[in-house]
Amino acid sequence: MMKRSISTHVFLQQRLHAGLLDAMVGAGAQSIELFAARHHFDYVDRTEVKELAKWFRSNDCRATLHQPIFDGRGANWSKHVPPSINLIDVEKTRRIDAMDEVKRALEAAEQIDIDSIVLHLGTQNDTWNERTLDISMTAIEHIKAFAAPLGVKTLIETLPNDVTTPEHLMEMLRIGHLDSVNVCLDVGHMNLHGMGGVASAFEILGDRIKQLHLHDNGGEKDEHCWPGEGTVKWDEVRAGIAALKLPPTGTLEIRYEPEMDAKTMSANAAKAFHMLEQPVPQPQS
């Protein structure tokens, strides 16, 4: 059975505090994904990081980290703002800036016991070619070298772009001999039109899947709805999880809504976990 996890993405417009973490544990979370955005989780504020580290030490709950995808403090952030940090940007200076920001977030692992970091490679418009492959492998190697001494594993997320399709991710890991790097399978992204579907992603990625991002959509845009509110085939997700040798971390990565208070989030998350843990339907004979 997968390890239950919730991303703080659900509270992205709010400053992260112990009360929100308590609500996630109350919903059944065994692990929490810290979504690195300075207006939400300010990973460069040592006092804030120290307070969160104290909470994790006092609770039976693990931590993972989602890399920053927004520049600076995000004062003008909204759910309509596209990512502005790109580790494989065509411009070298922007790649360097992106790398520096991800490393700043990773430094939180000096105080918080973080199991893994989830990386984004590229934006929606990035395409797969030899140059992209080379830059991607360089970025992964750089992050891996920085994260490993901190005890943090490196995971690459399947995004709705041509660079991080399951096939291209596996090619990247194979060519780069990146045996210690694994994958975060984003179920919602695989449900989008043209992305190949959830069942195919499980088949291609197999046991390289160590974490899942669990959310739903109608197949046309990346909506980050609660499981069951869209067209994701959750029977295929449950079957894919059951087929893995080691249970992954299953992270509910739900969009921020102003009306989503801690109580509502907790109830919705508990309901989603219950649905995801139902027995896998057996094929009719």
Rank of each mutant, 00 (worst) to 15 (best):
M1T: 14
R4L: 13
R4I: 09
R4E: 02
T8C: 01
H9E: 04
H9I: 08
V10A: 14
F11G: 00
Q14S: 12
R15F: 03
L16V: 06
H17W: 07
L21E: 00
D22R: 10
D22C: 10
V25N: 00
A29P: 01
F35Q: 11
H39K: 08
H40C: 07
Y43N: 00
R46C: 01
T47N: 14
V49M: 08
V49I: 14
K50R: 12
A53M: 08
R62S: 15
R62W: 06
A63D: 02
T64C: 12
H66F: 05
P68W: 06
I69F: 10
I69P: 00
F70H: 08
F70W: 08
G72T: 09
G74V: 04
H80A: 15
H80P: 00
V81A: 11
V81K: 13
P82G: 04
P83F: 14
S84L: 09
I85P: 00
N86W: 11
L87G: 07
D89W: 08
R95N: 07
E101G: 05
K103T: 06
I112T: 02
D115R: 10
Q124V: 03
D126Q: 13
T127Y: 09
E130R: 14
R131Y: 15
D134Y: 11
I135K: 07
S136C: 12
S136V: 09
I140F: 07
E141H: 12
I143K: 00
I143D: 00
I143V: 13
K144H: 15
F146I: 09
P149K: 06
G151R: 04
V152I: 14
L155F: 12
L155E: 05
P160N: 10
P160H: 11
T164A: 05
L169K: 02
M170R: 12
E171N: 10
E171R: 14
M172E: 01
I175W: 09
H177V: 10
D179K: 08
L185W: 01
G188D: 05
H189T: 06
H189C: 06
M190Q: 15
M190R: 14
V198G: 00
A199W: 02
A201E: 03
A201P: 07
F202I: 04
I204H: 02
G206V: 03
D207V: 12
D207H: 08
R208T: 15
K210W: 06
D216Q: 08
E220I: 13
K221I: 13
D222W: 03
D222M: 04
G230M: 02
T231G: 08
T231A: 15
T231D: 13
K233P: 01
D235H: 13
R238N: 02
A242C: 07
L244V: 09
T251G: 09
L252K: 03
E253F: 09
E253P: 05
I254R: 01
R255H: 01
E257N: 12
P258L: 03
M260G: 05
K263T: 11
M265Q: 04
K271A: 13
P281W: 07
